[in-house]
Write a protein that binds this DNA or RNA. Sequence first.
DNA 1: CTCCTGCATGCTCTA
DNA 2: AGAGCATGCAGGAGT
Length: 798
Amino acid sequence: MFPWHNQDQNSGETIGCAKMIDGLYYFDEIRRDEISNGFDAVTGGNVGLLRPASVKDQVVGNGTNEEKLLQLCNIMEANEPDHFQKSQRVDRSASPAQNRGENLRNPFGEVGSSFFNMNKIPVNCQPSVGSFTYSKLDTSRPHLELKDMKEPLTQPSLNITLGVPLGTPNFVVPCSGSAAQEDEKSILPYQQGQRSRPIFPKLIKTGTTVNSEARKGMAPLVRIARPPAEGRGKNQLLPRYWPRITDQELEQLSGDLNSTIVPLFEKVLSASDAGRIGRLVLPKACAEAYFPPISQSEGLPVRVQDVKGNEWTFQFRFWPNNNSRMYVLEGVTPCIQSMQLRAGDTVTFSRIDPGGQLVMGFRKATNSTDVQDAKIPTLSNGSHPGDASFSRVFQNLPSRAGGDASLHKSENFGGRSNDASGQQPMLTMEKKGARNIGSKSKRLLMHSEDALELRLTWEEAQDLLRPPPSANPTIVTIDDHEFEEYDEPPVFGKRTIFTARPTGEQKQWAQCDDCSKWRRLPVDVLLPPKWSCSDNVWDLSRCTCSAPEEISTKEQENLLRASKDFKKRKIGKSQKSIQELEPSGLDALASAAVLGDSIADLQESGTTTRHPRHRPGCTCIVCIQPPSGKGKHKSTCTCNVCLTVKRRFKTLMLRKKKRQSEREVEPLLQDRNPQLDETEMSGTLKGMSLQTNYSENEGSQSRMKDEEAASSSGQIDLNCHPDREDMELEGAGLSTISLVEAASQPVDSYSKQIGVSSVTSEQQSSQPSSMESERRLSGEVYHGSGHESTSDGRREHH
DNA sequence: CTCCTGCATGCTCTA
DNA sequence: AGAGCATGCAGGAGT
């Protein structure tokens, strides 16, 4: 019952339908006429009286209850490290609730739905229509006082008072209660959208398979969209707004609060919702069903509590829109920030009965990219991708899954209601994030876990990207500098390792996917992501997995170790640089690419500039250049590309001069590393190197041409970052380090065997004060294929 | 210049 | 096809 109900409805005596008997709340005494009245009976005049004082005191405001909430938080936090992060794709039978031990099993037997309070096990429920009646019971007497599950829906709970008249199809909810009552065959279309799974397994109604299965402890953790217990028939909620709360959560919450939690609806926050504007668009049906009716566009203030008892006042209003209304909650920013919600997270609106206090909970998306996804509610398993925990709705200890956990756990929610203080950081974050997760992101159907995977592979992606096999770069000459342009995006290939002899002979090593043996390949070979010995057409003697390896195990280890260390350092340096520069993800990619290119550059004396790593959506100046950018540019060309390149070249030249002057001032560096003169460095660079393929592949391909074409002509890397000299230098240094490591480690032995020269330890100096670096900076040799983010370009422009 | 407000637009989803 | 809704945008207010 909502606070804005008229007093009669809200009295809680007869009409309120919340009868407390022996510590149990029963809501089965509602009158049907009230049910049919629903919200329509609500007078707008009462809307302002949103929260009777008793409500808060009784439900949330009460310190004891609040403690319980916190207790719940703690318990759940402790006991459920990641339970809800796993969506229902995981085996629910292996729910943490079960893992926590049998002592947490509630009287529902194997349902195991109670993990909240060991001493106060909510065992009473009446979930006939999606709401629950719980109570605390003496542990010594845990029992289940279920309402007669055969009780027809004509005996609805309080929750129905706002709902559509009984008997309307949409009112048959796919909860186990309903399922139990209706049997599976009576599933209505409304249910079918959610596959009508038993969502209230605790409702032990023997005789149904559904419940039988549910009782195996699977369903309590099932986050299943529950059709709202109430709602106007006219405004059937779309399944996407069905609240998804596990039985456990409801039981715990309700049980511990001696109240009934009525999940009303939920909504995945859009970028706009989570943005700075502070407007949360309410689903029309939800707004009209669960919020007070408003006739004026200005609307009415609505008080909503969060789980900590903080009370937020939002302006519930609407805008005229296409002969309809668009309902919004205004002023939600503090609340959103308090919950540290972002686009993709889910806010859940529930109601605490008796009292009708609105409770706004939330559920974190497992990943920030898991944003508005229309498919969310209709996942095959009925789960929510961002299956955090509705419990967190009440725990105020948001734990965004994944890497965000710490961020949110560090947040202190001890603030007062409507206190936006201390939320500025979040505000800043939202300022950034909200825009990023924009209209495009909302249609990004990438699942959160996919995103995680992508995130993981993001770093790895550079190892796998290479120019498309069929790509024929277009040579573009700008200011006497040649560029290679690729029309095709890069492709993924199998990771390989390259070795090089001082003579220039290079080898590529690939590992068979089947036998894991390393096979030597021509250096210019581009392998598909999946490759096995049988595909080794270059060495027929080793085209089967049974063929012995060409190198010993130790050599392999050396090879891998060197490669690993190399990459590790490279990434570390890359990240360092990235952190320093605070680039975007794209920048990071570009940075990594630049580093890789630097390495590639160092190995070879000259390559042409190419862009093998450009992906669809790449915003580097090559990718964004107009079609006119293709082909040969005249020196007088004033297109964006040419202008940018010219600027860049100028910048590079300035930096070169600057560095030269610095070097003159700091000769010590040279003194300490006298070996690192130009000659030696060049020799070194042509020495052995162990690299992962991403730079090598391009390098290998470019090598073939570049060694012919090459080094003399100045070639500008469109992707190199003129403002990131350090990065380039680091890249060079990294390359040096990697080379040194490769040499200093047992790779030496390998080198000897395969005839690859090692490098001297003196080159461990990470200062690439070599001519190579200078050459790179000066534009004498520009290679690299890392793409450049737009931001870089902007920076350049600025 | 930034932020806020109200509305409009257009995409997406549902019936 | 219509409705819903996410977001863009213009105009006004505030800083």
